[in-house]
Simulated scan of single mutants.
Amino acid sequence: MAADPLVGLVARALRTDVEAISVERLAATPLAEVDRIVWRGPSGEGRLLFRRFRREASVEAALLPLLARRGLPVETVLASGIPPRHAPEQRPWLLSVEPEGIELCRGQVEDARRAASALRAIHEGMRNELPLLRALGVPELTPATLRDEAIAATALLSGEDAERLRALVAATGAEQAGPLSLVHGAAACDRVLVQGERVIVLDWSRAHIGSPLEDVGALVGSLEGDVGRAALEGLGVAPERVPDAERLHRLAAVRWHAWEAREGIRPLRDAAAAMAAALP
Score class of each variant (00 low, 15 high):
residue 121 A to Q: 09
residue 151 I to N: 14
residue 202 L to S: 00
residue 109 V to Y: 03
residue 172 T to N: 11
residue 239 P to E: 04
residue 219 L to N: 04
residue 27 A to S: 05
residue 258 A to R: 01
residue 272 A to M: 09
residue 128 N to P: 07
residue 231 A to V: 12
residue 159 G to P: 10
residue 62 A to K: 06
residue 163 E to C: 03
residue 169 V to P: 07
residue 166 R to W: 08
residue 171 A to I: 07
residue 149 E to M: 14
residue 6 L to S: 07
residue 76 T to H: 06
residue 193 L to F: 01
residue 157 L to C: 03
residue 80 S to Q: 05
residue 56 E to Q: 07
residue 54 R to N: 12
residue 60 E to D: 07
residue 8 G to H: 01
residue 118 A to T: 04
residue 197 E to I: 03
residue 26 L to A: 05
residue 68 A to V: 02
residue 132 L to V: 08
residue 237 V to S: 02
residue 225 G to I: 04
residue 230 A to E: 09
residue 132 L to M: 12
residue 118 A to P: 01
residue 245 A to P: 00
residue 216 V to H: 01
residue 49 L to E: 06
residue 229 R to M: 15
residue 174 A to T: 13
residue 76 T to E: 10
residue 208 H to P: 03
residue 238 A to I: 07
residue 189 C to D: 05
residue 186 A to F: 09
residue 40 R to W: 09
residue 104 L to V: 12
residue 203 D to F: 03
residue 239 P to Q: 10
residue 110 E to C: 03
residue 9 L to E: 15
residue 266 R to V: 15
residue 195 Q to G: 00
residue 123 H to Y: 05
residue 120 R to G: 05
residue 244 D to M: 14
residue 6 L to Y: 01
residue 252 A to T: 07
residue 109 V to P: 02
residue 82 I to F: 11
residue 103 E to L: 15
residue 64 L to C: 04
residue 18 V to H: 01
residue 22 S to E: 13
residue 160 E to D: 13
residue 218 A to H: 12
residue 277 A to R: 15
residue 53 F to I: 13
residue 112 A to Q: 02
residue 149 E to D: 15
residue 133 L to F: 09
residue 77 V to M: 13
residue 91 R to T: 14
residue 190 D to P: 00
residue 176 Q to A: 15
residue 199 V to N: 02
residue 147 R to T: 12
residue 125 G to K: 03
residue 205 S to N: 10
residue 181 S to K: 01
residue 219 L to Q: 05
residue 98 E to Y: 00
residue 67 L to Y: 05
residue 212 P to T: 08
residue 179 P to M: 13
residue 103 E to K: 09
residue 80 S to N: 11
residue 212 P to F: 05
residue 16 T to D: 04
residue 231 A to G: 04
residue 241 R to K: 10
residue 174 A to C: 10
